[in-house]
Design a protein around this nucleic acid. Sequence first.
RNA 1: GGAGGAGUGCCCGAGUGGCUAAAGGGGACGGACUGUAAAUCCGUUGGCUAAGCCUACGUUGGUUCGAAUCCAACCUCCUCCA
Length: 422
Amino acid sequence: MIEAGRPATKLKSEALQVLLERGLVHQCTDLETLDRNLAAGPVTAYAGFDATAASLHVGHLMPLMTMRWLQKLGHRPILLLGGGTSRVGDPSFRNEARPLLGDEQIAANISGIRHSVERLIDFRGEDGALLVDNADWLTEFRFLEFLRDFGSQFTVNRMMTFDSVKSRLEAQMPLTVLEFCYMMLQAVDFLELSRRHACTLQIGGSDQWGNIINGVELARKGDGKQLFGLTVPLITTASGAKMGKTAAGAVWLHPEHLSPFGFWQFWRNTADADVPRFLRLFTELPMTEVLRLSELQGAELNEAKKILATQVTAIVHGAEEARNAREQGDRLFAGEEELAAPTHRLDLQHLADGLGLLQLVVHVGFATSTSDAWRLVEGGGVRLNGRVVEDPRRRIAVGDLAAEDQLTLAVGRRRKALVAFD
RNA sequence: GGAGGAGUGCCCGAGUGGCUAAAGGGGACGGACUGUAAAUCCGUUGGCUAAGCCUACGUUGGUUCGAAUCCAACCUCCUCCA
């Protein structure tokens, strides 16, 4: 295993030097040879995303940032959407099977994921990145053919040794054949991409190590080719929690699931202790700047947090949205609940239909249910236009709208929304 | 194949006929304090246009005025025997 952030004096390739100093490297199958390859010329690398939800979330930023760096440094990324593997479900480090997804759900999720991926990676031009879907080949296999061609290359003995399934086996929890075969499918993906597009490197989260190794081994046995695997670390916050989970759900990358301002807020609220690490991992600021910002102490760190938030938001939602979000943040937290640009839009018709405050709180994503919102109101945590709301049954009326038919809604100290009706 | 044990809310974990929407802890969120941080203290933590109603303690049925708690079958797991 590679220590993240270790001075990369021996490395020849700029790519690995950058990834290491950014803290994006956790494990690698053969760091030295990969380094030579990356130094010798463009390498094609892939990262895959299964269609488990309608949007990617901040956890997916790690492999995506890695791909961005590789692209920036002259290598070619392939982003793989798991249209095929999503029908199976990766059992890695899970103690029970995922609910099986229907084809329609998968198709819908893939389009949401594609949206974010296309923002983060440049697919234009001949040398641009590639976007592929493993349904293209996985659905073509016939069962007996598949078993003969690939089943013969895997042993159950070996497959059972992977940590990703070991705990499930040891806990005697059921692991279906369907799930167990997931690692074969991902291995075949890697082989397929190496054949079709000369892809030699797979990037994934640390939970993907086993799946990646299987691909590397399959290519060696089957095609006599050396492929490489590189995993990014699992990020936890300073308080030890898995990153990106909040009361209102995951921190989504898709603007329909979390507004750019909400996204900006998430990063602005980073704990002090996480700031240096997050700057390295999730921004593309030069290391000198990262180090300078990391030196800041106490309340000065607030400026670093704003820069962090604005940088990440720019990568995910674009520079313009990032600027807006920052401006919003500055204004909304300046003192009063000042208005900037709307974070949410609603049809004016909703007011005529009798829009409840609780519904609005849920709608903007500050509560997961009206009951949840109800409790927030009872706890004195909800403010409408700067005034604490006492009555959970409060309805929104035309009289609540300020200029331009807008109102501000705030939950707690940090979550604020500007809702426009039109 | 046989004998015994277990399955609780986001997680861990009490409860063994009504006082239980379910102790306690963790996490999370809200309030106070602050720097939109941390620590600390207080509160909340199934759903619902909500002084009420509805769903909940593996699943499905049953006993009972009343069940997470008793019974039956089923599913899953654990331990011991073969």
